[in-house]
Design a protein around this nucleic acid. Structure first.
Length: 227
DNA sequence: CTACCGATCCCCT
DNA sequence: GGGGATCGGTAGA
């Protein structure tokens, strides 16, 4: 049985993708586990909409493949992919069944579980730099310890690292209140903030008009929005 | 099968 | 401003 907040959340996803994207701003991303560890939560502050398969910046531009299959599923499904062989990026699927729309979560403002997030960031870096010496690891640990909380998930790759987004989570239901990775409605007392729209980042390969569409949405002035 | 490149991030120059 | 880390997907031989 869904409570009132869950119902509002589910209703949100029945709207067109370009309306859902700005509406995701302010929602909470929640990560629980491993068992016994405090959960991590953060406020979504930056997203990008991908309106495949026509959208030449979308992974759905190649049609339905094993990787893109979750995008064709129900709205609220997670689409997780690997970029540059190391960073996992989280998308929220939107649109009706069979319509491969998705919204990339580009930045999150950490709210709780900050130490868990720092630990996850360090683990992610260690995985990339397998050949690190003891000193390298110590340096990275110190550096991450100095990063202000609002910058710990400022960028899509960092969101994946900070919240331990796993490839195995692709296709999972982000609206399931029991899921290890999920979305939750923001508390009603949390201020929304002004929303800005701008062109999407890192998609020069797509060419016009896709590079110019203002399909990136962010909370104006929020320090966790990526540059 | 190989070649190329990506919805990235960090460090060095 | 440039390059390294690292690997799955796609395209072309």
């Amino acid at each position: 049985m869904r409570n009132a907040g869950d119902k509002r959340l589910a209703a949100l996803f029945e709207r067109p993708t370009l309306e859902v994207a700005p509406a995701l701003l302010g929602l909470h991303l929640v990560r629980t586990g491993p068992a016994g560890q405090p959960s991590r939560t953060g406020r979504i502050v930056e997203v990008e909409a991908y309106l495949g398969p026509a959208d030449q910046a979308s992974h759905a531009r190649f049609g339905e493949t094993p990787r893109s299959r979750p995008m064709y599923g129900r709205a609220g499904t997670a689409y997780v992919y690997l970029v540059y062989g190391m960073y996992r990026c989280l998308n929220v699927v939107t649109g009706p069944l069979g319509t491969p729309h998705a919204i990339l979560v580009r930045a999150v403002e950490p709210l709780t579980g900050i130490e868990q997030i720092r630990h996850a960031r360090l683990t992610a870096e260690r995985r990339v730099h397998r050949s690190w010496s003891i000193q390298d690891g110590a340096r990275a640990s110190a550096r991450i310890g100095e990063i202000p909380a609002e910058r710990l998930a400022r960028g899509p790759g960092l969101v994946g690292a900070a919240f331990d987004v796993e490839l195995s989570m692709t296709g999972s239901d982000l609206l399931d209140p029991g899921a290890a990775l999920r979305l939750e409605a923001a508390p009603p007392d949390e201020p929304a903030g002004r929303i800005e729209a701008s062109p999407r980042v890192g998609i020069a390969f797509a060419g016009r008009p896709w590079t110019e569409q203002p399909w990136r949405f962010s909370l104006a002035g929020n320090p966790s929005v990526s540059g």
